[in-house]
Amino acid sequence: MNWLTRVRNSISWLPKRSTDKDLWVKCPGCQEMIFAKEYEENCYVCPRCEHHGRIGADERLAMLLDEGFEMLAQPEVKEDPLKFKDSKKYTDRLKQARAKSPHADAFSVGSGTIDGHPAVVGVQDFGFMGGSMGMAVGTAFCQGAERALSRKCPYVVVTAAGGARMQEGILSLMQMPKATVMTRRLKEAGLPYIVVLSDPTTGGVTASYAMLGDIHIAEPNALIGFAGQRVIQDTIREQLPEGFQRSEYLYKHGMVDMVVHRHDLKTRLASVLDYLAPKKAA
């Protein structure tokens, strides 16, 4: 912003003009500048290099579910059970994250249809404290599974996380078996559980519900793994291959079933649901 724009915007009775930051987005992949509106209209995919950007829960749900879906209320859990404080209080970190997000935590659930197929969709938002898995995330995941069980329809989960939420200690790790039990209940009920792996999906989320799906779909070039690449290299003392822990590498080695462009994701999910879901689902 130049000095003239700053002076103009400081005059209260004049309308503010959009800055370059409002108009442009820098692609994390090719580093090119893209019109923000063009980027948004292209589902947050770079039109030049096809880099799939990270998106929020509301945008993701709107992309996947048909109009008129129902948002499930965020579950109420005990906040800051350990009275945790590092450089900041955990409560302050939550307030800071909530000021930037329309949701109370990192996992949101919508109940509706995907191209007419009944489905419940849970979405993890990396923008909320790195999508970290705490009690609120684990409870919301289970709430989504319960809704799928009651509707007798598939459960689709879009993951994006840096792992467990350290501020909740062992309580965050307890969400892993808790979510695993719910995926088992879905299987016992004969309901499809489909996971869409987006960038990044790591840590305890990968070690639990992210890798327990009947079908695993990954977005292009998404980072998917448990430990970080540097940690693995330091442990095994070997150089890792090109593209290690990326969607295409995992697809080649049988860890994911398909890699699907974001523009095609809803159509592909509808095809999978058409094949897996019972027609009588409501």
Rank of each mutant, 00 (worst) to 15 (best):
D199A: 08
L240A: 14
F128Q: 07
A106F: 02
H52Y: 08
D20P: 02
P15C: 03
T113H: 07
N42P: 00
R6M: 10
G130A: 03
A57W: 01
H263E: 03
T235E: 09
F244C: 06
L64N: 06
K95V: 14
A136P: 01
R17N: 15
A207P: 08
C27N: 03
P278I: 13
R165M: 08
G122A: 05
T139K: 08
D105A: 14
T267P: 05
A161R: 02
P177Q: 11
A164R: 06
P15I: 04
S18Q: 12
Y193E: 04
D234H: 15
S208E: 02
L61F: 00
F107W: 05
S172N: 04
K88W: 13
M182F: 09
W24F: 06
Q239E: 15
I170C: 11
P81I: 15
F84P: 13
P28Q: 09
E40H: 11
R246F: 07
M255K: 09
W3E: 15
G134I: 12
V196P: 02
G190R: 01
R60F: 09
M258I: 14
L212R: 13
A104Y: 09
E38G: 14
F128W: 09
M133I: 12
A179L: 06
V272C: 10
D234Q: 13
F126A: 15
G130F: 00
W13D: 15
L212K: 10
K187W: 04
P192F: 15
A179R: 03
S172I: 03
L94P: 06
C43D: 13
V196S: 05
G110S: 06
D86G: 12
C46T: 05
S208F: 03
A222M: 00
A281T: 14
V272A: 12
A218L: 07
T113W: 04
G29T: 07
G225I: 05
T201L: 04
V181I: 12
C49K: 02
K266Y: 06
V157A: 11
S111C: 10
Q229P: 03
D105P: 01
T180V: 10
V45E: 00
S87D: 15
S172V: 03
I114S: 15
A222Q: 00
S132Y: 07
